[in-house]
Design a protein around this nucleic acid. Sequence first.
DNA 1: TCAGAGCGGAACGATCCGTTCCAGTGCTAA
DNA 2: TTAGCACTGGAACGGATCGTTCCGCTCTGA
Lengths: 209, 209
Amino acid sequence: MPETALPGRRAQAARNDVVILDAARQVFLVDPKAPIAHVAERAGVGISALYRRYPSKEVLLCRLCHDGLRRFITEAEAAAEEPDGWAALTGFLRRIVDADVHSLTVHLAGLFTPTPEMGEDARRANELARGLVARAHESGRLRRDAVPEDIGMILECCAAIRVEDPERTTQLRRRYLALLIEGLAADGGPDLPGPPPRPGEMNGRWRPS
Amino acid sequence: MPETALPGRRAQAARNDVVILDAARQVFLVDPKAPIAHVAERAGVGISALYRRYPSKEVLLCRLCHDGLRRFITEAEAAAEEPDGWAALTGFLRRIVDADVHSLTVHLAGLFTPTPEMGEDARRANELARGLVARAHESGRLRRDAVPEDIGMILECCAAIRVEDPERTTQLRRRYLALLIEGLAADGGPDLPGPPPRPGEMNGRWRPS
DNA sequence: TCAGAGCGGAACGATCCGTTCCAGTGCTAA
DNA sequence: TTAGCACTGGAACGGATCGTTCCGCTCTGA
């Protein structure tokens, strides 16, 4: 029962499923508080098509956010397979930055009440990130004073880069990620200033206002 | 005619001048689209006190933005005095990051129509930044493929770091700025990926929507 | 042929926010 | 002492925005 082979109206519906999700990602990535009408417009559908699928904006936001989180986990698990701990960490960062996943999970947080399942996935993501940093440390190529919480911050930095053209955005983000990774490499430079980020220090975003 | 010595009502007015500007900075730094009432609340004054000083929100925003730009120029001029080109650039970045000036000039752009005077100052700021990068290159400590436009991007990265506590925010920003600066140092590593940012590539923000 | 799934978009109601307005307060100067 | 006024707090207003509902239409599948 391949979805793409469905005829007529159902085919349109199936196509709309993905078109709407794509549009929502693009729109809310640029402006997390964008009105839902923008999503419909971008998708080239009416508002009804949205409300047929999601009972409210909050649910759509939650779905988007959770998808991003799952992508994060998937990439982290893939990176865990890479034998070289340093390559695992840097490759992981590159893929997450390319996928623009950080904005989805983080900048949308606080706009909806998270499901318990998301909380669990968030914990799992944390655990995986911790493992990646630990293995990078073992490889000896990661500077000694780097901590797992640095990952989220570095992703935050990269997510801040954004220009009109999405492809150009990716290029530029790679540039500054490369800069950060260069800094992350243990080259015997001075220790980083100030106390490192603590676990949970960035969690202020998660409770709904 | 020292302002602080003014008695009674005028003293209150003089105090309010600075209290309001401070509050506006704090509020709009966190959320550039915050309602003006939040500023009044934070300043501990009524809305009238705001409208007595600024004819509209747009003017206040413009003032804030222009102040930030002027601060940028001041710091850049100070850095130009520093004989060591590398120390000049890195010190400049640190001071701008500490002053949280980038958000003021950039994230507020597009929310008002810029004055011609601001355009001129923006050009001057660009020129100064270009000079700082040139001198850093001459010092031999800046990686060859760094360009003046990288400055704005790096500031953007740091500005993305923000937590509840302002002091903690500063600490964390210094941490990631240090990482970026480490990457900026010419250590014979591989060239940065992708085409570097071009002059004016980030100017899409400046026209009012 | 027709029931109904799916759709577009107008309409509605709630909320938000910039701005205006007015009554109160306490200096200041005559 | 007191009239005038600079300054203020905050309620009120009007316009804009946005999430959601609703209605009439189209086209499918049996």
